[in-house]
Design a protein around this nucleic acid. Sequence first.
DNA 1: TCTGGGGTCCTAGGACCC
DNA 2: TCTGGGGTCCTAGGACCC
Length: 413
Amino acid sequence: MNAPIRRIAHLDMDAFYASVELLRYPQLKGLPVVIGGARRRQDEALRLVQGERGLAGIPVEAFPVLRDYTGRGVITTATYAARQFGVGSALGLMKAARLCPQAILLPVDFDEYRKYSRLFKAIILEIAPLMEDRGVDEVYIDFTEVPGGQREGGRVLARLLQKAIADKTGLTCSIGVAPNKLIAKMASEFNKPNGISIVHEEDLQSRIWPLACRKINGIGPKADEILARLHIHTIGELATQPREWLIDNFGKATGAWMHDAANGRDERPVVLESEPVSISRETTFDHDLHAVRDRAELGAIFTSLCEKLAGDLQRKGYVGKTIGIKLRYDNFKSVTRDQTIAHYTDDAGVIRHTAGLCLKRVPLTQRLRLLGVRVGSLLKAAEAREFESNTPVTHAVSTHSTTNSIAATDQLF
DNA sequence: TCTGGGGTCCTAGGACCC
DNA sequence: TCTGGGGTCCTAGGACCC
């Protein structure tokens, strides 16, 4: 018997956030709907008009529309009906309102999306156990050894997955199957929504090479701009450049990677488990704040971010020892500062104190639009305790104690 | 009326040690 | 009497992704 052909699938949920919202509000099906912006207000407004028939009974006219929205924020997801108007992910809401003022605007309800995320991934795992989590709405799956994974190049298994997910969640997805992750990722976009694409090794020149370089996962706007200046626009053009020339222009690692990627070479395995490197919280203010004039408000936000972050760490069972801050000025320039401490911690007071020291190292004359706090160099809390028992007292782990109250730390703002 | 929030990885320089 | 390379850790910034 021949060795099975390596077949990797990329599965991408279609307009995921918006589709989950449509499960709650089926009366919005077919209408332009965008998700994004401020969370609470619209939600509460909707609950007020919710009649005996529940959420599905709310009349379409009661939903907030883009036209009435004022404030910051971007679109995270748009329904396909909304995309007709040129609105899509990452577009500012104010700009979107000009393109499609009648679009219905729903707030992001991440808990709900996470619920469906866990659900569709569990369904996949029952059928195909080798799955790599790539965020709330997409995964890679190794089809190679799965029953049916080789039939029709993977199409039979892909259809089975689509059907199982649709039956149990009411959601659709698109799947690309290819010899590796890189091509599978591109292939999953070929037939969106609710599509399947099979790309074989020998299809590289006909189906991948005509695409723009930007379609390669890992080539972003900056790299694309440099390539354009070098008169390279398609993946085929990139593939036929001499490897050494790409290395001269992009550096050793990036140049070699680009050459491999364009030639369809990618040996990365499907990774089943991974540990987080950092956990963070950040927030963009409703309006820009000044470190002096809005000191009290900023201080409260800062403390609250630290508390939420500590809560995240405790809930997930991690401690870290590199504490950092990020801020973004009104001109959108960002700076970061971080500091590594001797003790692993998940304590809000320790985080707040150390982050406060970081804040003192940064210019605070310009107005701010964003503030963030981050904890890195993470360790599982259990492993950290083990580490502690083999380490001198000065390196002890400090977990959420009451001795380090936030109120006791110095106030920068 | 520009531009969210949560991440990962890479680079590069300096400190410090051997 | 001034000069090596590595290796590792820390920090800052930036590209990129979902």
